[in-house]
Design a protein around this nucleic acid. Structure first.
Lengths: 349, 349
DNA sequence: ATGCAATATGTAAGCGCTTACATTTTATCC
DNA sequence: GGATAAAATGTAAGCGCTTACATATTGCAT
């Protein structure tokens, strides 16, 4: 960058020395005054405060980071910002961090482990003090990076896989099984599933497994053609659903890996003149705003997104402060019955 | 933080000195080798590279920031992450920045100017090299902060308001007027609007103005009871729409400030047995995925979100590199006709 | 070979802050 | 009032990096 790149060249920002001089104290006192006011006399604190205001001083981030070896920054890598469920979890995380003056650095992996590893590298290079990750599917290299730096991290959205790192999530298998259980309870026997792409996504895989297990328990199964994996978009789900609706033995219920997929399903049904729920039942997962914006509103699973976000913040902050690794937490989910799930057509129970 | 807070205490990260020693060169050469490889002999570069790999060295962020007075970080403050339109713009921005090894720090204002000012303060304290903001409504204090630091920033989503700062957006007034024009073209004369809250949001205000102007040009007007401002949620829009549908002279068309509001409108219509579009037309704004996930799909306005994001990135990077302030840009929008907008009922044209 | 310009590398001075330790001031107790 | 402990403040040494400037090396024309 050329010397004059700055839009207002020549301006020098006041440093801690300027403040110290003006307040008639040492830089150490200024630093303490700002960072641990309790360790400074009231009168001194006020003098410093006054000087700070007068000069418009703000601490230099680099200097602070270098000297304290902390950036007060937490990184989060989510699959995508386009699904509101992650956006809302991040919001809660950010609010929690903000109470302790920690900022959140967000990156996305686009559901790609390779991307995720690259983002981990970037965030570590940015000197984050801790990291929030989604799910347990990760390249070995990613764990090596994390380990090499020794940066604390928590995993969200999954159930604890092992004792390696704290996990704050829910049981995707059980939640998906509960959905399937409810679908079966409505008399459905020809059940299909549109899932997210399982490769590199343990949540998607677990949900498939949960559905499979529940079906098996009822003496049913997810026949090969009745399980379609696709990207989490309305469009792709619409195509997948179309395929299911045109198959030989059309399912009477489609269990979807999330609400976005379910919305695509509804669109396909409408396009093919299939009535929901009288001809076809559809279920979602997540309970985002979309679930009730579409018609019929989606039976789905309420996921504790805000709690995961907030807990993750607490866990990480506590870890950084005390050095004690937080425990893993499994939060409850709740099946939400809505119009999109109805009884199987009489002839096909 | 206690000394042993770190999960793997005692580990010292390799520094540039370690690399220099191992590679048998000076730290200056290591630095050059990493930051401007062209200025170093091939053989030297390889030796450094080898040492870097062997040690697992990564530059310390604080040291780098302090010495170079740059953080390679751009901040963005958006109203909310929960609207996919912003999420997608950010995605594009981030992709652009990533090509130059710049990371994006995201914060949200929740549509509150006070919040936004606080976030600006936070990001500046984080040492961002530049900033991306949404809209032109801002507290004077926010501009003072920006000005005091002399940090380059660009504004998205609005049309240039003045010569003060580069703006990369579109004409909300014209776009909204175009929507109204189309609605009028379908024979509607009783037109209502559900808008976002105008206070502190120039986009919302401009869209109201655009609709008003177009109506006025056709000899119509937005009667007081036919303009409702509400938060950008499906729920609130549903309430607002309910109110409109129950009013004395029910509108035959409701123009909404964005797609989320329009989705709420559709829900209210369904609940009151009002058919869209035969009894009531509804339009949205943004053309997010939701617009076609609902039924009937929303006539709306396609907003150049990705282009705004990408352009903002280019603009800021260029500004930082060259020191030359980029020009403002007004991007085109496109009205998208879909099923939710139809002809006014015969009796009420 | 020689001289000179161009290129590559080294030396060392900070960047602005925190914090261990030393010193001074204030409070407390007998 | 003096000794002692506690609290407040100061001194100064880095934290790890970049970069201006000095020096060494290389390439090239003569």
């Amino acid at each position: 960058m050329p010397e004059d790149a700055h839009p207002t060249p020549g301006r020098r920002h006041p440093t801690i020395d300027d403040v110290a001089r003006l307040a008639g104290v040492s830089t150490a006192t200024v630093s303490r005054s700002l960072n641990s006011p309790a360790r400074v006399r009231e009168a001194t604190r006020l003098a410093v405060e006054q000087a700070v205001n007068q000069l418009g001083y703000t601490p230099n981030f680099g200097g602070q980071a270098l000297a304290s070896n902390r950036t007060n920054t937490i990184g989060a890598i989510i699959p995508t910002m386009e699904n509101a469920i992650f956006a809302r979890a991040l919001q809660a995380l950010q609010e929690t961090l903000a109470t302790r003056n920690v900022t959140l650095l967000v990156a996305t992996s686009q559901y790609s482990p390779t991307h995720e590893e690259a983002q981990i590298r970037t965030l570590l290079a940015r000197g984050v003090d801790g990291l929030v990750l989604i799910g347990n599917d990760r390249l070995p290299g990613a764990y090596q990076l994390l380990d090499a730096r020794g940066v604390p991290f928590v995993v969200l959205w999954s159930a604890p896989a092992d004792a390696q790192h704290p996990t704050i999530g829910f049981n995707n298998i059980a939640a998906a099984a509960e959905v399937a259980h409810n679908v079966i309870g409505h008399g459905h026997r020809d059940i299909a599933m549109i899932a997210g792409i399982a490769q590199g996504n343990d949540r998607a895989r677990d949900r498939i497994q949960g559905v499979s297990q529940a079906l098996a328990k009822a003496g049913l199964s997810l026949s090969p053609g009745h399980l379609i994996e696709c990207h989490y978009t309305v469009k792709d789900a619409e195509l997948a659903a179309t395929q299911l609706l045109q198959s030989d033995r059309r399912p009477t219920a489609i269990i979807c890996g999330n609400d976005v997929l379910a919305a695509g399903c509804l669109r396909a049904a409408r396009q093919h003149g299939v009535e929901v729920p009288s001809d076809l039942s559809v279920t979602g997962f997540d309970d985002i705003e979309l679930a009730t914006a579409v018609f019929p509103p989606l039976a789905t699973v309420r996921v504790p997104h805000r709690r995961m976000g907030a807990n993750a913040g607490e866990a990480l902050l506590g870890w950084l402060e005390t050095g004690i690794r937080p425990a893993s937490v499994v939060l409850p989910t709740e099946f939400v019955q809505r119009l999109s799930l109805g009884d199987a057509p009489p002839g096909r129970r």
